[in-house]
């Protein structure tokens, strides 16, 4: 398996400007701070985190909505660490995104046909003559009727809108789709349908997904590997099964024990009980040392001084915590 996407030392800092006149930069919001991971071809990497953990910013930097402050984004070996407007067209053809809220990601003044024809025209996927049949084909993939072509986004349901957004992402036959919480703005009743459709599509077209979500239990059934983000950094990254059976980072343990369960069998999966305490600190004034030291039940003096390094404790299982610094494999 070859890596389709490699992210190395990615940083995105948003400057906080003190006043309109002086433009003096007082501080930074460190939304993404030194994040590294890779995504194999045909894999689904779940990037999980609370609100404010920087997971959406990571997604936006990867697709080129923001330019990174530092770091490299290698797509099929090609460095694309710039905004989308500066990227070569053939890269934009291969990297697509599905946004969280289809109510704002589809232009309200356009009908579905116009929305879907944008990527088809930009990348000259089909000739003008075959535009309509290609759009019908895309609607067919996401199981929407052909006559939706002339509907406005506001005339269809939320789940259907997200299906249109998925169809738009598929229009250029991409190899990587970044899914930025694709179901969190939708009704529960349609979430499962969207997820299943996404998984079918992934298998059918051999796609790689970077799946951003705050829903850890969802990732259990969906992701190949899971990465946990906290305060702009990845705390733990492991294959999905390993991640749930052998969670190492106290934060991961806390998240897994806070997943609501309905049966004894599910309850037994929870190894350690760690009661969730406190909230994620502001990413403006990140405490020195490990970012999790405000909430960690196992904190030591060292945790307030030194930020731990990422360590591969088992093959493919990475953790960034002082508890495991000696456990290199």
């Amino acid at each position: 398996m070859s890596e389709i996407l490699t992210v190395k030392g990615l940083k995105k800092y948003f400057p906080i400007v003190s006043s309109t006149f002086s433009r003096r930069q007082v501080n930074y919001i460190k939304a993404v701070d030194n994040v590294s991971f890779f995504l194999n071809e045909g894999e689904i990497l779940g990037l999980v985190g609370e609100s404010g953990s920087g997971k959406s910013t990571t997604a936006y930097v990867i697709v080129g909505i923001y330019s990174p402050t530092a770091g490299d984004i290698l797509f099929k070996g090609r460095n694309i660490n710039v905004v989308a407007t500066k990227r070569p067209l053939e890269v934009k053809k291969e990297v697509a995104i599905v946004f969280q809220d289809p109510g704002t990601s589809l232009n309200p003044q356009h009908n579905i046909r116009e929305i879907l024809s944008v990527p088809l025209k930009v990348h000259k996927v089909v000739s003008k003559k075959h535009l309509n049949s290609k759009i019908e084909e895309l609607l067919d993939i996401v199981e929407l009727p052909k006559n939706y072509m002339y509907k406005q986004p506001r005339a269809i349901g939320g789940g259907e809108r997200q299906m249109v957004a998925i169809a738009r992402a598929l229009a250029t036959n991409p190899s990587l789709i970044v899914l930025d919480e694709p179901t969190s703005a939708l009704d529960v009743s349609v979430q499962a349908k969207i997820i299943n459709k996404l998984l079918d599509i992934q298998k059918e077209f051999q796609l790689s997904y970077l799946f951003i979500t705050h829903d850890l239990s969802l990732m259990r059934n969906v992701a190949t590997r899971i990465a946990i983000m906290y305060l702009g950094k990845i705390n733990e990254l492991a294959p999905a099964a390993e991640f749930f059976q052998n969670p190492l980072h106290p934060y991961t343990q806390m998240l897994i024990s806070s997943v609501p369960v309905v049966s004894k069998a599910e309850e037994s999966i929870k190894k350690k009980k760690i009661i969730s305490a406190g909230e994620i600190p502001s990413s403006v004034n990140i405490p020195p040392g490990c970012g999790f030291n405000t909430r960690c039940p196992f904190k030591k003096d060292l945790c307030f001084e030194v930020d731990p390094e990422m360590v591969e404790v088992m093959p493919g299982h990475y953790v960034r915590c002082h508890l495991y610094q000696g456990m290199r494999c």
Partner: peptide
């Protein structure tokens, strides 16, 4: 707006 960002990502 997100739909403008979407168009940028597409490469419009």
């Amino acid at each position: 707006e997100t739909f403008v960002q979407a168009a940028q990502v597409i490469g419009a």
